[in-house]
Simulated assay, not measured.
Amino acid sequence: MKVFTVVLAMLMYALTAQAGPSINVGVVYDYLDGDKSTYLKRIFNGGTSTAFVRVEILEILYDDHGAAQEVPLKSQAASTARDGLMASPARLIVPANGMQGTRLVYLGERKRERYFRVRYIPVVPEKEDAFAVSEEEREAYQSSLQAGVSVLAGYGTVFFVRPQDTRFDTRIENDGGKYVVRNNGNSVIEVDEFKNCVAGKPNDCHPTTKNHVLPGRAFSFDKEKGREYTFKLVEGETRKNQVVKG
């Protein structure tokens, strides 16, 4: 069994931390429904100076044992169709206390579900970057960061591209001392806000978790006497509250 657990990749770029850009990408997990091909992602900058953000995309591949590997997207010849996820634009200039959006566009076949890591990385613009700023503006920006103490932090999110003919087929096995949520569909489901608590004591719990269950995989837990398990089963736009007694 392999469950796609919560992953939050933070990339720290220590420069010189009281002033500077501070980006926020919102939710860590985004989903592209089977009948859509574009998704608008908003990037917020709550800092005191402009943020120059580079968007990078890797594909997440799983082997037969469920182990994940992040690989660069294959480059395509100009004469062939693109296959994968792209960001437009891939370079963002986000003003202080402002917001900019990038459109994530999927091009390619949709027979199976695919997964991507999308990284939003604040950078100090260099000559080779495509930020369309002059040399004077670039030097002034660098000087403003070096004048104080600043940390540029980037975030990695996970982007799910559902198949065109999305089909949910979740099976529950509740036998003996084990509870299993099995995904027999062709798109990811969520076991969200999973809580393992002492029965009758909703504040006496293990840490709450969010779990992604990929097609063909399962999420399970052992039921213990005197404990209660609650979670939300999420299939696309459908959410069902579940309560399991130990």
Rank of each mutant, 00 (worst) to 15 (best):
A96T: 10
R54S: 07
G156N: 03
N196G: 04
S79D: 09
N211G: 10
F219K: 00
K245W: 02
R138V: 04
I57R: 03
R227Q: 01
Q142P: 06
A96F: 04
K36A: 10
E173R: 11
T38C: 04
L40P: 10
F4K: 08
G46D: 13
V149I: 08
N203V: 12
G26S: 06
G156L: 00
F221E: 05
E224F: 14
Y155E: 04
D175M: 14
P163N: 05
T230P: 04
L32R: 01
A147D: 07
A81W: 08
G236R: 04
E136H: 05
L32G: 00
T238G: 10
S88L: 14
T238F: 06
I43K: 03
R114Y: 02
E139I: 11
R217H: 09
G177P: 06
R217Q: 12
D83C: 15
L32K: 00
D30R: 15
T38G: 06
E193Q: 15
D169N: 15
Q242A: 06
S88H: 10
I189K: 05
Y106S: 02
Y106E: 02
S37L: 09
G46N: 14
T208V: 12
F44C: 14
F131Y: 07
S220M: 15
M1S: 12
S144P: 03
D33L: 11
G200K: 07
A77C: 12
E237M: 04
F219I: 04
A132L: 15
F231V: 00
I43H: 05
L11V: 12
S88Q: 15
Y29K: 11
